[in-house]
Design a binder for these strands. Structure first.
Lengths: 335, 335
DNA sequence: TTGTACGCGTTATCAA
DNA sequence: TTGATAACGCGTACAA
């Protein structure tokens, strides 16, 4: 864009002039659209090399009506979950020559609408991850941002959707704990406004129905390492024998604090997380959790984005299911 | 960019026509450049609302000669270090109305040159993080990508630079360990091609000079959790009483494996990391490490990028120093 | 196969 | 204060 070397960057016109051809011809050898005489082509090539010419991406964008860029908007880049998604979609996009514009709404739902729309306007499509904005904001975004794909925010609206099945994931860990003889569980929930927290709560309710005698206390905590650590004392004051954490971050924070307090896990208390972030297998004790295919999610998102950009209608929402990863933070309920 | 609702998006011309004014006037009320008659302005406003008009970002980019977007290229988005930088720079940029295009070179140095240049061409400036490309590639990038800022890749070239002082950081932990009576250290290095690894090695050499009798073995390991875990056995076979890991990832992986093996830390072995990622304080035992101001780095990077875009000459390279954070993975050398 | 001419949607210049 | 009109740099019908 900017040229600080004093002399303005060469344009296609400059190349055409030095090569003694028309701009159309230069454009042709550049894009290989039509065939061009070998001799002319070579003159163009040398002119390009001589002038160190590079086509203006901006001008191409305007002329072609597309930017070959997609927008990815997430609530928090610090969350390993979104990092994994971003990572996956970046790789997929790169393979098709697309770049990625990233937006971080800093966990502030009131910024999401603007952020999503602004980012979208500079790109060809939008990948909106786990937005917590109110329904009406979401409706506005859905109305303007097509083609787009929505991740982890179930909606009846006809838009391409991809979501982790947290309800199913909680079912997995609840069954696991019930099988180990636990009857009094504690669910450490994330932000109430989060759709994925609501999903988890449904999973909790399902489990209670499925296992008569199982009781699950609910508590709102947060979604971070610190939140998990801070809640340790309250957890110990409860009569639960097992804890289902909102995600691995909360679980690992809790585990660390319990270790400091000398509480035996899983002897006295079992702890499970959800997500299976890379650190989960390196915690002490190694965390039992639900593995969700995060990179695959990014890849799938890219596939859906391509469909959407190609004008293909949105398929049914895709629910990706996780699998239980039994490690060492869970064990039989204490007698 | 794309409009799937069948009807093409309204342009400034459409607004002008429905409002019965010229496009110039519409542009004026849009950007508030000059004053415009109140009545006309209102007609324009209503026309805009009625047509649901939004100016084309692409067209503005071409006309204004800038995109209000910066490119950030990192070796690996999965690394908490780069995530933190990306996070910081995204926040800073957002405050000034800039967006961020992110590129991930997947730890493949041969992709860096192209990735950096491609990303740069769609943006107003480039933030290049810890590139491992050969010097000649770097020279090529520096020649074309201005305005830009370089992070963690010291070079004599006159470009704005920002770097963690890993040499100093290693000095900090080495002094700490020497003070605890350790004489036989083991340095677990990262990729040899990495400039930050070379910096650390200088720090190691400095420490050996500063502390007569101190010997430090060097070993190349990698930069990941898995790498740290995998090297545990080799570490135990050495006669070192303390380990300096390339970064916190390696340290945490190592710690986890040592715990599995029943090795007492810091009783038998002390372990230190570098970076102070969020997980460092939640490992077992809590990791002694060097805290580097990562978010601040992102913020500083944005400040420097603004300077560069304003045409201000590059200041001297900025070296940011870390501070030792003593936690519980280090203790007196065993007798 | 090549060149001419126009369109992409804005902003900026210059008269009026 | 307003409106023609010319950039911005490229792609592409269409004609030659």
């Amino acid at each position: 864009m900017t040229d600080t070397r004093g002399t303005r960057a060469a344009t296609i016109g400059d190349v055409a002039r030095t090569a003694g051809v028309s701009r159309a011809t230069v454009s042709r050898v550049l894009n290989g659209r039509a065939s061009v005489d070998r001799a002319l082509a070579e003159r163009v090539e040398t002119a390009i090399a001589q002038l160190d010419y590079r086509p203006s991406e901006t001008a191409r964008n305007l002329s072609l009506g597309r930017t070959n860029t997609i927008a990815v908007v997430v609530p928090d880049l610090g969350n390993p979950m979104f990092q994994a998604i971003l990572h996956g979609v970046t790789l997929g996009a790169a393979e098709d020559g697309f770049q990625v514009l990233v937006g971080d709404t800093r966990e502030r739902p009131e910024l999401e609408r603007r952020a999503a729309l602004d980012a979208r306007r500079r790109c060809d499509a939008l990948l909106l991850c786990a937005p917590r904005m109110p329904d009406e904001d979401l409706a506005a975004v859905l109305a303007q941002a097509a083609p787009m794909v929505l991740i982890n925010r179930p909606t009846p609206a006809p838009v391409a959707q991809l979501a982790m099945d947290y309800r199913h994931a909680i079912g997995l860990v609840a069954d696991h704990l019930a099988g180990l003889g636990h009857r009094r569980l504690l669910y450490l929930g994330g932000p109430l406004s989060s759709a994925s927290n609501r999903l988890r709560l449904e999973g909790v309710a399902d489990a209670e129905k499925r296992h008569p005698g199982l009781v699950v206390q609910r508590q709102e905590v947060g979604a971070s390492l610190d939140a998990g650590s801070d809640i340790a004392d309250a957890v110990l004051r409860s009569d639960a024998t097992a804890v289902i954490a909102f995600n691995d971050l909360v679980a690992i924070g809790l585990l660390s604090r319990l270790d400091d307090l000398g509480v035996s896990v899983p002897g006295r208390l079992s702890v499970v997380g959800v997500d299976d972030i890379p650190f989960a297998r390196y915690s002490r004790p190694h965390l039992t959790t639900v593995s969700l295919p995060k990179d695959a999610l990014g890849t799938q998102a890219w596939a859906q984005l391509k469909d959407a950009m190609a004008g293909r209608p949105a398929a049914e929402p895709v629910w990706v299911e996780g699998t239980l990863v039994e490690r060492h933070s869970t064990g039989p309920a204490p007698a």
